[in-house]
Write a protein that binds this DNA or RNA. Structure first.
Lengths: 109, 109
DNA sequence: TTAATAAATCGTAATATTGCAATATTATAT
DNA sequence: ATATAATATTGCAATATTACGATTTATTAA
């Protein structure tokens, strides 16, 4: 099918899955890392640095933007992208709670 | 294409993307959450609780196992799955470093 | 207005993912 | 050995993702 049955899961599970999925690609991780280092990023720089076509980079940026992880504003002829602090905080909270709920060291099987 | 150009990224970026991708599905999040609560889990229980077909659950379990997030041992006629502590620690470290490297509150654009 | 630059969108090909029925495998009990 | 139970695998259909060339849109400069 290729169609996730979202109606069988809670909105929290679906939301976390959506955020993780948006980050679950090496190009999008590389994009985010560049923003984390430089605070900001412009599509053209990424095209040069990542070695992917402009259309591909633009598509990855849209994907990150569509789930709210980044935001972009027009700066003259280019577009300035940066982290959306709200979503980033949500991400940290959700993933932190999820990963942090594992306590046992001894593997049971 | 549908084919990620992994050769353009570092092994760290590819590894993190692979781990995130394995978790980036609501069914797999639900499976992990159940393991986190009960410490262990058996395929049959998940089939009843999640409302997906047995073949589908088995496939999701295999995906989580293939990246090392969970491990399974045969327990009589069923299989006991639990968290793989090593991978979980790696996940916490990698994701923690990634998310934690964002410091600025003020959005720049 | 026109040209130049940057980014977004469209269209498309190749590949991956999701889900399930049917079947196969594995381990226990009789 | 056979039957039963639990899980894994296979094969397939529907849909999603990835990547990119070509084109369009939007903004600035001349």
């Amino acid at each position: 099918m290729g169609l996730t049955k979202t109606e069988m899961f809670t909105s929290e599970q679906n939301q976390l899955a959506q955020l993780l999925k948006a980050m679950a690609h090496p190009a999008r991780i590389a994009i985010l890392q560049r923003i984390l280092v430089f605070n900001t990023c412009i599509c053209g720089d990424l095209v040069e640095e990542l070695g992917l076509a402009q259309a591909t980079i633009s598509q990855h940026l849209r994907e990150l933007k569509s789930v709210g992880i980044i935001q972009g504003t027009i700066e003259g002829v280019s577009v300035c992208y940066c982290i959306n602090p709200e979503t980033w905080k949500l991400l940290e909270a959700q993933i932190g709670a999820f990963l942090g709920s594992y306590k046992l060291e001894a593997s049971c099987c």
